[in-house]
């Protein structure tokens, strides 16, 4: 099964590693966890080095988030889904700035993790509700300018956790909700430091016609 998606799970709790592996393998199509470990070496050595997606816990046995490890993984083009215990807006925005494709809190559950991993394997961003809240509440000076509709989509998604509900509320289709969310992420990818994942994301968005070259 050469086209089966693969992931490596870096988390200091064995129960979380086992749980994530189970969730990913029980989706359709299943995602295979090829390696897992309590520190980031699992993502650099053996089969883990070849995995499509790195699922990275930010707090590996210490109080400081392992943002350095995230940066090194992203710099070599690895697609990283940050999976964290803490719903901290600033850290979430920092992870996006570094080039993570998703910041997911552990409170958000299996469905979001499977979707985030699947999106990341394709080099696409995924914006779970908590991250949408962080983006909507972003008051930093260098934040990108979002349209009123984009802000509404973010807020509604954060408030409802249901894209169907957002679509119904705003009178748009489900795919429009998704493309708004993706476009917001592209705007974020265009600010701050450069990263291969962010460049790939923008390139893909142009290819898909989501944004024009003029928008850059």
């Amino acid at each position: 099964m050469a086209d089966e998606l693969s992931a490596v799970v870096v988390d200091d709790h064995p129960a979380v590693r086992a749980g994530v592996a189970y969730w990913l393998s029980s989706g359709t199509p299943p995602i295979r966890v090829v390696a897992s470990g309590e520190d980031v070496r699992a993502a650099w050595l053996g089969e883990g080095a070849q995995a499509d997606v790195v699922i990275l816990d930010l707090h590996l046995g210490g109080p400081t988030p392992v943002l350095g490890d995230l940066r090194r993984l992203v710099e070599v083009g690895r697609r990283v889904v940050v999976y964290s215990m803490r719903a901290d807006d600033d850290i979430a925005l920092q992870c996006l700035e570094l080039g993570a494709l998703c910041y997911l809190t552990k409170a958000e559950g299996a469905e979001h993790l499977v979707q985030a991993t699947r999106a990341a394997a394709e080099g696409r961003p995924y914006t779970p509700p908590s991250l949408a809240g962080a983006l909507a509440g972003d008051r930093s000076d260098h934040r990108p300018a979002l349209s009123a509709r984009e802000v509404e989509v973010l807020v509604e998604w954060f408030q409802s956790e249901s894209k169907e509900f957002v679509a119904q509320r705003l009178g748009i289709s489900l795919s429009t909700v998704n493309s708004h969310l993706e476009r917001i992420r592209i705007k974020y990818a265009l600010i701050g430091r450069e990263a291969p994942t962010k460049a790939a994301l923008v390139a893909r968005a142009i290819q898909d016609g989501l944004i024009g070259v003029d928008d850059l």
């Binding site: 809240g133 909507a136 509440g137 008051r139 802000v151 807020v155 954060f158 408030q159 409802s160 956790e161 249901s162 509900f165």
Partner: peptide, 17 residues
């Protein structure tokens, strides 16, 4: 129920779905 509290640049929004 989903309860959310969002504090943006100019607004505080409390929502319940």
């Amino acid at each position: 129920a989903r309860v959310s509290l969002l504090r943006t640049e100019g607004e505080v929004r409390v929502a319940v779905i």
